[in-house]
């Protein structure tokens, strides 16, 4: 029983890590732009497709993906950040100052445009890629056989979260970003330059998306032009469950949602398992009924009197 339990914990941690990376990217941008960027999942797809040679052939040829891993990370991150900044210039900045609904529709449109650009360039057939095959081998951990990739996912996420925390806590840019995420208007009235902060948030969220796309691609081994959508969906509900507008909440929410998913996967009977996601959403609704502002309520969502 114990080893099985431990296996579930590791599964939940590695799935939660992917959700956390994605949820943080969404949360960072929500903080400064007050928009749920539905194109974030597509940023992840862009990162994944950046690994291969652009072509509509069924056979994917790794190009960037075949380089040493620091270069892979750097080049995918640059591709995603470039797309993120283009999105800011062409969609988010022109729509600044409009209603939140307009911004949200803008991000939906952006999502469709990116998906269809991928479709045009790479074709609609899913492509198999073999990124970092050495990570699919297993190691012995406390009597368990664990895939190296799961450990790498948890490790990379932990490191990135640590670095991000350090950046947000100790640097001037970090403090300004947190201030802007909590109260954007007040931050501007203290002289914090809006466009600088937004560009910084976009770059960080691009870096997070790139990391997520690498780990996700290594795990699934398949590229498809809508590959980022389910990840985006679960990361989005993670941010809501954790408390929209609260970055720590996004991470907590991600691990809660992942844990629910893993537990359901383990306990549902064979007939019910195909409906697992429906059960996840039922539990999410239950959590929100219990805490309407999320598990860790954002500081800005209620005011102190």
């Amino acid at each position: 029983m114990m080893p099985a339990m431990l296996q579930y914990v590791i599964d939940a941690l590695s799935l939660g890590s992917l959700y956390a990376l994605t949820a943080l990217g969404i949360g960072l941008l929500f903080g400064v732009l007050r928009v749920i960027n539905f194109a974030h999942g597509d940023f992840i797809s862009v990162g994944a497709y950046a690994l291969i040679v652009p072509s509509a052939n069924a056979l994917a040829v790794l190009y960037v993906g075949a380089l040493p891993w620091p270069l892979v990370l750097l080049l995918t991150a640059m591709s995603v950040i470039m797309v993120a900044i283009l999105s800011e210039l062409m969609v988010f900045r022109p729509l600044r100052g409009t209603t939140p609904a307009t911004l949200m529709i803008g991000s939906f449109a952006l999502s469709f445009i990116i998906q269809h650009l991928l479709l045009m360039i790479y074709g609609s057939r899913p492509k198999a890629v073999n990124l970092w095959p050495e990570l699919t081998t297993q190691v012995n951990l406390l009597g368990l056989r664990v895939q190296k990739l799961q450990l790498a996912t948890v490790g990379a996420t932990a490191m990135l979260l640590g670095a991000l925390t350090l950046l947000l806590r100790t640097t001037r840019t970090g403090v300004e970003l947190r201030a802007a995420a909590e109260d954007y208007q007040m931050a501007r009235m203290l002289g914090i330059r809006a466009n600088t902060v937004i560009a910084g948030a976009l770059a960080l969220s691009g870096l997070l998306a790139a990391t997520a796309s690498l780990l996700y691609t290594a795990q699934s081994g398949i590229l498809s032009y809508q590959m980022g959508v389910p990840l985006m969906m679960f990361a989005f509900i993670s941010t809501v469950v954790g408390g929209l507008g609260n970055l720590l909440g996004a991470v907590v929410g991600a691990f809660v949602v992942a844990a629910i998913e893993v537990i359901l996967q383990a306990t549902l009977s064979d007939q019910l398992r195909p409906f697992r996601e429906a059960f996840v959403f039922v539990l999410v609704i239950a959590i929100l009924l219990w805490r309407p502002y999320g598990i860790l309520e954002a500081h800005s969502s209620r005011e102190r009197v």
Partner: peptide, 29 residues
């Protein structure tokens, strides 16, 4: 942000502190 940098400080109603930041971080801003 430009108006603030020109030296017009606005202290809006309802005490807009950054509640998720420490007291010192608020002051440093």
């Amino acid at each position: 942000e430009s108006i603030a940098r020109l030296g017009l400080a606005t202290v809006p109603e309802r005490r807009r502190v950054f509640s998720s930041l420490t007291v010192e971080e608020n002051l440093r801003l």
